[in-house]
Amino acid sequence: MAVFTAVTLDDLNQWIKQFPLGQALALKGIASGIENSNFFLTTERGEYVLTIFENLDFDQLPFYLQLMRHLARRGIPVPDPVPNEHGELVVPLHGKPAAVVTKLEGASQMDPQPVHCAEAGTMLARMHLAARDFPLQQPNLRGLDWWLETAPKVMPFLSPENAQLLSSEIAFQQAFAGTDTYRQLAHGPVHADLFRNNVMFVGDKLTGCFDFYFAGCDTWLFDVAVTVNDWCIDQQSGKLDPARLSALLDAYHAVRPFTDADRAAWQTMLRAAALRFWLSRLYDLHLPREAELLTPHDPTHFERILRDRVEHASQELPA
């Protein structure tokens, strides 16, 4: 993630002693994303990731970190948070909440083929089922309430055409959220940000997924739509690629079968997933925060995707 809070090895000399990790040997800032300060951390015990949370507070973080521990203990390949000597997963560093998690093996597959999409679909379904008995509750903090709150803040920066698109789509999604179909969708903890760069592979084998700091309780179908809108598209046009789409959806369906409600809501959820990331990228572009390393994403990418999902129906979910 972008480095908002600078940290040095000297800063870690005393802090790291509370963890069973030995001495800190190397620290490198990760210059991608725009939410937290992330670092690759090498210690005498191995490779880890140190995160300093810039937006989330001490009260919010137990949901994310406990969810990761819950999934890790059920065989889902995710980073496992490391507790300190008091059993705490979140501890202050430079006055901000911080955590250390295990580092995954592999590298992200930024040009996924159907085989990679199938791996992602299988893991996503397994993750949803594994989290069914997770006891903590927290809404998706970038869901409908956030859309309604944030849209007026970015409206002054938009062209009339884009302002109309944003207003109409939020109204459409707000109306759908009140329907029986929406209420029938399976609901539980979701990753909500399972982009290609948050999943690791060794060859064609998926070795893990990370960055759970947008996770929350939402419909499982929304999580599938977020994933599809990144993994299964032509990057230039935003249009869905049938081969990759079928591979991901078929693999997911084999583990957690889609329902009639899922099939009825699919096109709407694809639009919702595109809206969420278009709006967040508009916000980050026009109302940025300062950071030592900052790489804002282009919002026009998800504008194209949203317009395509509004205008063209996707292939149906597997039956």
Score class of each variant (00 low, 15 high):
residue 279 L to I: 07
residue 35 E to M: 03
residue 120 A to D: 03
residue 154 V to T: 04
residue 224 V to Y: 03
residue 195 F to Y: 14
residue 93 L to G: 03
residue 117 C to E: 00
residue 67 L to H: 01
residue 257 P to A: 03
residue 278 W to Y: 12
residue 57 D to P: 12
residue 216 G to N: 12
residue 115 V to A: 13
residue 149 E to R: 15
residue 123 M to S: 07
residue 141 L to M: 12
residue 3 V to A: 13
residue 272 A to W: 05
residue 126 R to M: 05
residue 145 D to S: 15
residue 125 A to Y: 09
residue 207 T to V: 11
residue 170 I to A: 00
residue 20 P to M: 01
residue 153 K to I: 12
residue 135 P to H: 10
residue 26 A to I: 04
residue 224 V to G: 02
residue 286 H to G: 00
residue 18 Q to G: 04
residue 165 L to A: 13
residue 269 M to P: 06
residue 255 V to W: 11
residue 169 E to H: 12
residue 143 G to L: 10
residue 60 Q to Y: 08
residue 156 P to W: 11
residue 141 L to P: 05
residue 128 H to L: 10
residue 2 A to F: 03
residue 134 F to G: 04
residue 44 E to M: 01
residue 139 P to G: 04
residue 139 P to K: 01
residue 207 T to C: 03
residue 9 L to D: 02
residue 288 P to V: 04
residue 240 L to G: 04
residue 66 Q to R: 13
residue 142 R to Y: 10
residue 54 E to D: 07
residue 299 P to G: 05
residue 31 A to M: 09
residue 231 W to E: 06
residue 145 D to F: 09
residue 284 D to E: 13
residue 45 R to D: 08
residue 220 W to V: 00
residue 237 S to W: 00
residue 286 H to C: 03
residue 172 F to E: 15
residue 258 F to D: 02
residue 104 L to I: 08
residue 213 Y to E: 05
residue 258 F to E: 04
residue 184 Q to S: 12
residue 212 F to M: 05
residue 292 E to N: 14
residue 140 N to R: 03
residue 191 H to F: 07
residue 108 S to C: 14
residue 276 R to K: 15
residue 270 L to Q: 03
residue 290 E to I: 10
residue 247 A to P: 00
residue 258 F to N: 02
residue 236 Q to C: 01
residue 264 A to I: 00
residue 42 T to G: 06
residue 240 L to N: 07
residue 156 P to M: 10
residue 221 L to A: 01
residue 14 Q to E: 12
residue 127 M to K: 08
residue 130 A to R: 14
residue 245 L to K: 08
residue 281 R to F: 11
residue 297 H to A: 12
residue 174 Q to L: 04
residue 146 W to C: 14
residue 182 Y to W: 09
residue 137 Q to D: 13
residue 12 L to C: 00
residue 22 G to R: 05
residue 36 N to D: 13
residue 21 L to W: 01
residue 312 H to G: 05
residue 199 V to N: 05
residue 184 Q to D: 07
residue 241 D to P: 02
residue 174 Q to H: 14
residue 301 H to I: 15
residue 30 I to C: 07
residue 268 T to Q: 12
residue 40 F to T: 14
residue 15 W to C: 00
residue 100 V to I: 15
residue 165 L to Y: 10
residue 271 R to I: 05
residue 189 P to A: 09
residue 306 L to A: 06
residue 275 L to Q: 13
residue 131 A to P: 07
residue 183 R to C: 03
residue 34 I to L: 13
residue 174 Q to K: 13
residue 309 R to M: 02
